[in-house]
Design a protein around this nucleic acid. Sequence first.
DNA 1: AGTTTTTTGGTAAATAAAACTATAATTTAG
DNA 2: CTAAATTATAGTTTTATTTACCAAAAAACT
Lengths: 239, 239
Amino acid sequence: MGDRLASQLEDFKVGVDNVIFSVDMTLNRVLVLLIMRQDTPFLGQWSLPGTLVRKGESLEDAAYRILAEKIHVQNIYLEQLYTFGKPGRDPRESPDQFGVRYLSVSYFALVRFEEAKLIADGVPGIAWYSLDLVPQLAFDHNEILEYGYRRLRNKLEYSPIAFDVLPEMFTLGDIYQLYSAVLGENFSDYSNFRTRLLKLGFLSDTGIKVSRGAGRPASLYRFDSEAFAPLKDKPMVFI
Amino acid sequence: MGDRLASQLEDFKVGVDNVIFSVDMTLNRVLVLLIMRQDTPFLGQWSLPGTLVRKGESLEDAAYRILAEKIHVQNIYLEQLYTFGKPGRDPRESPDQFGVRYLSVSYFALVRFEEAKLIADGVPGIAWYSLDLVPQLAFDHNEILEYGYRRLRNKLEYSPIAFDVLPEMFTLGDIYQLYSAVLGENFSDYSNFRTRLLKLGFLSDTGIKVSRGAGRPASLYRFDSEAFAPLKDKPMVFI
DNA sequence: AGTTTTTTGGTAAATAAAACTATAATTTAG
DNA sequence: CTAAATTATAGTTTTATTTACCAAAAAACT
């Protein structure tokens, strides 16, 4: 930083776009939250929920603001994803509208499906889309979503983010289902997956048994954040 | 994106700051490139090499422009690191200078020390700093550097970035030295490190032997990018 | 009542990681 | 010039982990 010729510099508006994932355990689908745009450009088209950063607002604050505007939910996992800034990525950057660029700082978020109540106020549409049914999105949002999905897959392998989309209590089969849905079928043997997971030492058995259709009833487990805390920085493998 | 009240929105200048790492194999030190600032704010203080993004320039282009301005070098590894945008991170964001924010998109770069010729034109200072001797930097650059160093350590474990800082030809001992310098002493047994590395299958022995002081001469190896290409997306462990 | 389904708790074989040993080829010290 | 020290290389052995597979338990389904 420190160019002399201010006239050469670009002026930016900075947007924050969120890739908000969730999982519907009953239908076993990975979901992403989409908003139907009510403004030009791309009016009426589906897009990632986003906003332009306001005065005095940090990027993360802006990301949380969108989240709070669109869904009522307790637990939110949020981390920065990537920054997209290719010239021309936003049609508002028309050459006649002299020297305004639109940057998008994207954030990656996870919420629990059952806890998340969508807020439809003021937007013509808001919906959880199954990942395989996502339509053509506004701007470069398909690319951003793709980036977010890659992050989701990667982090599932070495980080306990699954427990931010799973319900508070879950069966080991639920976790396996989630991993299968994201990482593809037969990514690992179920029995081995179970033992590996339990050996990590931060899943506590509540003792409560639930029957889901046929088969022996399963134990409900809970993520024990106190048991996890000291392991936070140790490398661990989930798959 | 799509706020109605344009007056609430912040106007940004966007900067790109590079965390450029290298390694001096003879002294076995990890190095980062620093620039002495010739402009206010922080005039005369050391900082990461950066620039403000120009009209029509992509973020990555800006990152490459800095690199090209500061060092002559063939091979460059470059990837986006993180975006820093907390209000007040740049003193030029004074409340009187109405509503201008400074965002920094940081990039992570690796170059080969012997091949990299520093270009001191127009700056009062440019230097490779050993990581343990880095002074207080301008802006939030110490934080950015810390972030970059974490990325360096992480990527060394599962990605072949070592070969972007090592010379074209290197001994297995060189790699071990590099890993020791970054990851700390005795991170692994040398003998086991060797066999693990060779088993990955993309280091080719040139047959050339070199003597570095005492001891049996070592074979020079070379990173075989063709042998690596098909393994690119397979998970692999270096340490 | 018997079959199917799912959870659960295992074992055995294959692989990989960690610890360790020995030898080769050089430089350095005496 | 020779012995000692040093570093590279090539193993082996032991231990731990991963993978593949098996079987009983506890429920639903037919």
